[in-house]
Amino acid sequence: MTYRAILAASAALSFCLASAAASAQTADKSIALSNNYAGNSWRQAMINSWEEVTGKAVEDGIVGSADAFTTAENSATEQAAQLQNMILQGYDAIVLNSASPTALNGAVKEACDAGITVVSFDGVVTEPCAWRIAVDFKKMGSDQIEYLAERYPDGGKLLEIRGLPGTSVDEEIHAGIVEGVKAHPQFEVVREVQGDWTQTVAQKSVASVLASLPEVVGVVTQGGDGYGAAQAFKAAGREVPTIIMGNRHDELTWWKEQKDANGYETFSQSIAPGVSTLAFWVAQQILDGKDVPKDLVVPTLRIDQDGLAEGLEMTPEGGVTNQEYTQDQAAELISSAQ
């Protein structure tokens, strides 16, 4: 037995004690995830990330429990009932991806009145007592024009692929693009087509306008439509312009192929499904007594030319690039918002 071993052991022990003290505030707290829909790959990845990260957090004794609940149908009334059940189960915090920005307000208020911390993300709620981790879709639009302005200082004509009509996400990304074009008047959107965030739809609608489409320098998109657009250009025998990608596996794979073959350059952006874990850590920080502003903005997960190989590694086949957040990242986001 050497002194060194004892020293090491006591150092390890004191380290354990220190970390236990840091999380003692929330060690017996329980957090629930209320989710309204689980029917696509993004939501599946979101739930898997939640289970992975919170499972580890429970094991490490940072929180007492973190259960995930999904409603059978994407319906606001059913989710309101689910929230009320969670209140009765005595959760300390509820992390919420909401079916409606307003229809859950009554239930959210009841939860707040019962002393429960409510953190909404992705599908956020307007009730003032809840925290919101929102996506800045407008910035996702204007960032694309910013990027193109750097690539093509002289500007040029653009093709815009829209998302699902009538949704707020489509409206906001579009508004961001319009704003970007206003700030960089050397660009002009010559044609808008509907892509529904789906490769096949985007390919069909881009192909149908290609015959009458003048030379464009770039294609601004909403994600999930870049690969389809590229296929349409290729099939028509035209040179493929700079298409902004949306972190889908097929988009990144195609980009990698082109990059290796002819040095094709673009960038790719989307929201990582792992944003559920960011919401989890924010809830944990609030329970820990930290002062957190009510409105936070999720950073988009952006892949640039240099980060392509790494980004592709983070993307499961057929899925979206994912990133799970850590406690430190959440703390950083909170302090940067203050």
Partner: peptide, 17 residues
């Protein structure tokens, strides 16, 4: 009664009914 409970509405609020 539904809108009194939820305090605000949504066009799809009760389709499940």
């Amino acid at each position: 009664i539904l809108v009194g409970t939820t305090t605000s509405a949504d066009a799809n609020i009760a389709l499940r009914y």
